[in-house]
């Protein structure tokens, strides 16, 4: 059974279609990164999953519970950390978490035990009696995460958990999320692509309300156009090298990028994704007797995938 499965989810705000025909599954134990430019529909989709925004059409289920037919049961299985982490400023950290735990159905001794456990886990021991108003951004974020973790829900939906944090705090939150993966299924949205590459085992790219890709980061980067690209710098004739390289079967196109100071020619060899033409390229240049000073096979990052999928020019 999928932890999350959406069926033809649509959301319209007036005439504007924020999300159209979104279908995806999240399996138990996965950490899924939800990527997309601002305004792509990430937050809207997440809000629909949590039951805060009703979908215009379609439906989704959380741990087998339909969000429209059994909204309360679906919500019992998820912990949600909204973007910008709204909290009650006039409450104290412990008081707030205890209140949230009770709302989630915990009672009696288990409230104290659970809140204590979560406070430990999120590194909030020193702040438990502080007013939420006085907390720094990093600690607010942790309180928001702690709230989502209360009651050990099977699914965590985190909307930009590292938004607005400094690099050290980002690292801490990232470590925490990575640790959480053993107990929870995580669906998180973010702009920081390196983060996704580090912690997610599945990526969903959404743009203009539509899903552009959903796969593992490795397979996404592997299938990219930029994947087989090799750049070369050598000193010698241009035409003959271009002709010889063009004869390699997997090569699709050779681009002359200009002559650098000292007579070095710079070429980009575009080949089919997943092939490596470095060896043959080097061999050809060596056979012609030209000096070769640089050969590099481009390793595409998730950033390249993201840019390629969501570029509008």
């Amino acid at each position: 059974m999928s932890m999350v499965s959406t069926e033809h989810l649509y959301k319209a705000f007036g005439r504007f279609m924020a999300v159209r025909d979104v279908n995806f599954n999240v399996e138990k134990g996965e950490i899924v990164g939800f990527l997309g430019p601002n305004g792509a529909g990430k937050t809207t989709t997440m809000k629909m999953l949590t039951g805060y925004l009703p979908p215009t059409a379609g439906t989704a289920s959380i741990a087998g519970h339909d969000i429209l037919d059994e909204p309360l049961e679906a919500r019992r299985h998820l912990g949600y950390m909204p973007e910008n982490v709204p909290l009650y400023d006039e409450m104290r950290v412990y008081e707030y978490l205890a209140y949230r735990a009770k709302l989630k159905g915990l009672y009696g001794k288990s409230v104290r035990a659970e809140v204590g456990r979560i406070i430990d886990r999120c590194g909030l021991e020193t702040k438990r009696k502080n007013m939420i108003r006085t907390l720094s951004k990093g600690y607010r974020q942790r309180v928001g995460l702690a709230d989502a973790l209360l009651g050990t829900p099977e699914l965590l939906i985190l909307d930009e958990p590292t938004n607005g944090l400094d690099p050290n705090q980002i690292r801490q939150i990232r470590e925490l999320i990575r640790e959480l993966a053993s107990e929870h299924t995580v669906l998180l949205s973010t702009h920081i692509l390196s983060e996704v590459e580090m912690i997610c085992n599945k990526v969903i790219i959404i743009d203009n309300g539509e899903i552009k890709a959903a796969d593992t980061p490795a397979r996404l980067t592997g299938s990219l156009r930029a994947a087989g690209r090799v750049s070369v710098e050598y000193k010698g004739e241009l035409d003959v090298v271009m002709r010889e390289l063009g004869a390699i079967p997997s090569v699709k196109k050779i681009i002359y990028e200009g002559t650098l100071p000292g007579g070095w020619q710079r070429l980009i060899v575009r080949a089919e994704p997943g092939t490596d033409t470095r060896e043959r390229t080097a061999a050809i240049i060596a056979r012609l007797g030209y000096p070769l000073r640089h050969i590099y096979r481009h390793i595409p990052s998730l950033e390249d995938v993201f840019v390629e999928m969501t570029r509008h020019d």
């Binding site: 159905g105 915990l106 009672y107 009696g108 050990t152």
Partner: peptide, 30 residues
């Protein structure tokens, strides 16, 4: 629920008790 005994500190020893009474929730909000 997954049972993981390796990190006892972060695991609840017993399943979390939950109550789903309508009035209990109302009382908490009130």
């Amino acid at each position: 629920m997954e049972q993981e005994e390796t990190i006892p500190k972060t695991q609840t020893s017993e399943p979390v008790r939950r109550r789903t009474s309508w009035f209990a929730t109302l009382r908490i909000l009130y």
